[in-house]
């Protein structure tokens, strides 16, 4: 099947798993074909060149054969520019991968999502503030998945007032509140934070702090009850650094 070969596709490896004696199942995020699984034959042989290539957080260019469930990796080329992640940056990377793996549908091409992911990985390398990279990615991911929170108008169609406080819930417009509390299933954030989020402006520490609560609430709704392992790991590490 000549027509089912794809060449030179920008991609990232999200995860690999052993498959049969010497092969790997590689979960990839590609620019034009979305997320799916490739079989990398012989990739686990001791001297396989693919060992140093099929690594997460590395910009790659992949070619593969086949369609549907049986796609086989043909070649993987190094695009470079990103040192291997280690330490806290690696845990952050795992968090990005877990979000993409859990939330992006299989075989749903989204060049926009690929661009977001690529930008997040490269921002982590550039020592951008991790919190900013994560909040930017989480917000854009929600938008890309079609769950963008309402940020400009409250539930009465009034413009958001920066000095007011709002209760935000999944799938609903913000509701004015006079307290600091948030009932279960809601986040209490300032109007200033909503305005900043609408402009994707994460300059202020308060924006990042409140955005973290709000975005977590919205993502948890999509993720369901099963916890994210990387988030637990971050919590463990955070407790150690205290």
């Amino acid at each position: 099947m000549q027509q089912s070969r794809v060449d030179r596709q920008p991609a990232y490896v999200l995860h690999t798993q052993p498959y049969r004696e010497t092969s790997l199942l590689v979960e990839v995020l590609t620019r034009d074909y979305g997320r799916f699984t490739l079989v990398a034959r012989g990739a686990r042989r001791p001297r396989s060149d693919l060992r140093g290539l099929l690594l997460p957080f590395q910009p790659l260019q992949l070619a593969w054969f086949g369609k549907g469930e049986l796609r086989t990796l043909h070649t993987a080329d190094w695009r470079g520019g990103v040192p291997q992640f280690a330490g806290a940056r690696l845990v952050t990377g795992f968090y990005l991968n877990e979000l993409v793996l859990r939330l992006a549908a299989r075989d749903d091409p989204s060049p926009a999502l690929f661009k977001l992911y690529d930008r997040a990985v490269r921002s982590l390398v550039d020592h951008a503030l991790t919190a900013t990279v994560l909040r930017r990615f989480e917000l854009a991911l929600l938008e890309e998945l079609g769950y963008a929170p309402a940020l400009t108008q409250d539930h009465l169609a009034q413009a958001i007032a920066p000095q007011a406080r709002y209760l935000c819930r999944f799938g609903a417009a913000p509701e004015l509140t006079d307290g600091e509390q948030a009932p279960r299933g809601a986040a209490n954030v300032s109007g200033a934070t909503l305005v900043a989020l609408a402009a994707a402006d994460f300059e202020q520490p308060q924006t990042r702090r409140e955005a973290r609560l709000l975005l977590r609430l919205l993502l948890d709704e999509l993720l369901g009850p099963e916890p994210l392992a990387s988030r637990e790991l971050l919590t463990t590490l955070y407790a150690l650094s205290d």
Binding site: L55, P56, F57, Q84, F85, A86, G87, A88, L90, V91, G93, F94, L233, T236, L237, L240, S241
Partner: peptide
């Protein structure tokens, strides 16, 4: 190992033991 999994394990061990 120098895999992403081995590296993240190394990181956690280092943080725990340094503490």
């Amino acid at each position: 190992n120098f895999t992403a999994e081995g590296e993240v394990t190394a990181h956690l061990i280092a943080e725990m033991l340094k503490a």
